[in-house]
Design a protein around this nucleic acid. Structure first.
Lengths: 336, 336
DNA sequence: CACGTAACTGAAAACGTTTACAGTAATTCC
DNA sequence: GGAATTACTGTAAACGTTTTCAGTTACGTG
């Protein structure tokens, strides 16, 4: 494997001249150096460059679980965008554990230029940990602590929840259930609150027994739906806070023979594969995961650029639009 | 950010002594060094270590598309396993392009210890490119070139295809269609061939007009199913070579109002989310993506170990079992 | 006590690259 | 022609870590 010394010797110049040419400076005998590089198949050593420059052209991407389709798509969006600028991504799954985040980032922070993270916790300790990294950070979907010390990208949770509530109201639903994610997370809290507030301003209240709050997991969705079925409180519609919980809830409703939308209208935040092929194709608030990844990447790349040019810029808060995708899982409540 | 010089100064020893202690050697004043490390929050610089050692504790993982649920799960399996050995993963999506693979690997090969790849091509040029990397490589699912110069992990394509054929035969199907992936790829070829051979040994032939071969994509699946519907040759069952194509085929069949299994029995290789919730829950050959990732990681970690101990070992070829998961998309052909 | 050995130490060099500084040659201007 | 300026060069040091080699100290044995 050829190094810069080999190239310099072959071209009859110093290693400094080779390096300069690679950095875009003019040199006298460009042809000889280019020829040597091609003949030797030379590529600069990334570790050496990173060590000398303190810049690695690498982004750390931390998500709860790379196998989750939403996060996988988000990562794809980030990858696509940073790749166009010669960057690559290191990926790690946190399993919603702060300790995993801290461990991973501690071990690789001096080999990356910036961090994109879907944080496990909204806590002050996460806030501090991220601030102490001394690298640009973009939060995705969720906030940490109180100070606006990081860039943030998220979808229009409020707008989506409002659309969901209005859709169910417009169909005539008045006894409505909700399955929400953890209230310490931005998506969990905002979707929940805005859905309730929108109903409330139309004079509709969601009862405590019709409210389930827990993890954004499939198994929680299953359990929540099972409990609602068992409680049999007469809800005619349910709003589920994300697609993973919704998949679990659908399994339970199916197993219990609950007809959708005949007995229960069903609407969830986030789309998922084959939603349109289910017995009652699911009405969803759909979001652009790829675009969200692109937006996060753009914010980080801009931040990295700022570091090099010495520019100071305020923290950005970017909100991506969502859309109501009406399929067939919602109908007016049965009159009997 | 503290470096090893800071630690050495604070502990009153040389940097060599600090380094030795970190490498597990005995030193006289261990307490002082450990104390200095803790007080300064010192972590070794990964780039410097990698440069000096030529070892990075990093694995490159190249898959066609990280947003594809199967590959995302595979990557998760790899991540889980290598992480237990202090390794991390750099991920890139090739979009089934050799040129992307070559570009990505060229840029990061000196920053990683090994490569796990689902190659875009079975070609000699891919074989050569991977061999020239001079690092351990494990192929996943697909082979390259002819020589067995790499470790390989794949699922039991032959076993799965055989089970699929036998299942349809046992139900009495005699006019059967097949939608297969590219024949230059191991999964595409083996699943196709063994399915046909199994039918053939029971005296059943698949007609050319009932055979569709193309990309392992959803859109190809859609198109293939559309063509089969339009051809209306009277097939009573179809076997689809993977889950992505199957999802596309299901969309087309649904749109055309083709009843499953009433008019057409449907069976595919690979499972997918919510398969059991479809109007006719899909019968699949299911495979263990996480376990496949684990197996690939284990082979690579063993290879890395070999490099350090100087051990020579033959190339491994690991085959993971698949299973027939019977749901309700297959029935005996209608008698009318 | 003298000698040999084991255990540890620090200085220096290595890994591959970038760049500051001093030097040289060529060009331009007065 | 001489002085100033520009454009380029190579040497040496930097980045943070690991490890070789030479040196020192402590211990055990005859």
């Amino acid at each position: 494997m050829a190094n810069i010394h080999d190239v310099a010797q072959r071209a009859g110049v110093s290693i400094a001249t080779v390096s300069r040419m690679l950095s875009g400076e003019n040199i006298r005998n460009r042809a000889a150096v280019e020829g040597a590089i091609a003949e030797l198949g030379y590529r600069p050593n990334a570790s050496a460059r990173g060590l000398r420059l303190g810049r690695h052209h690498t982004i750390a991407v931390i998500v709860p679980d790379i196998a989750n389709p939403y996060f996988a798509t988000l990562v794809r969006g980030i990858e696509e965008r940073v790749m166009t600028k010669g960057f690559r991504i290191i990926v790690a799954s946190s399993d919603e554990q702060f300790t995993a985040e801290r461990e991973v980032l501690g071990g690789l922070i001096d080999a990356v230029d910036a961090v994109a993270i879907v944080p496990a916790e909204a806590s002050d300790r996460t806030h501090r940990m991220l601030a102490d990294l001394g690298k640009p950070v973009v939060l995705i979907d969720r906030t940490v602590g109180d100070d606006p010390e990081f860039d943030l990208v998220h979808v229009d949770n409020a707008g989506g929840a409002r659309m969901a509530a209005e859709h169910l109201l417009s169909l005539g639903h008045r006894r409505i259930g909700i399955i929400s994610g953890r209230q310490e997370t931005l998506p969990g809290q905002v979707r929940h609150k805005v859905f309730l507030d929108t109903l409330s301003s139309a004079g509709v209240q969601v009862e405590p027994e019709d409210t389930k709050i827990g993890e954004f997991t499939r198994s929680f969705g299953e359990r929540a739906a099972q409990e609602m079925i068992a409680a049999n409180t007469g809800i005619t519609a349910v709003f589920v806070g994300n697609n993973t919980m919704a998949q679990g809830a659908l399994l339970s409703l199916h197993a219990a023979g609950v007809g959708i939308p005949g007995r229960l209208s069903f609407l969830c935040f986030d789309d998922f594969d084959l939603a349109e092929l289910l017995p009652s194709p699911v009405t969803v608030i759909s979001r652009p995961a790829i675009a969200e990844g692109h937006a996060a990447a753009d914010l980080l790349l801009a931040r990295i650029d700022d570091l090099e040019t010495g520019r100071q810029r305020k923290f950005m808060h970017k909100v991506l639009p969502v859309a109501l995708t009406v399929r067939q899982s919602c109908a007016a409540p049965a009159t009997s």
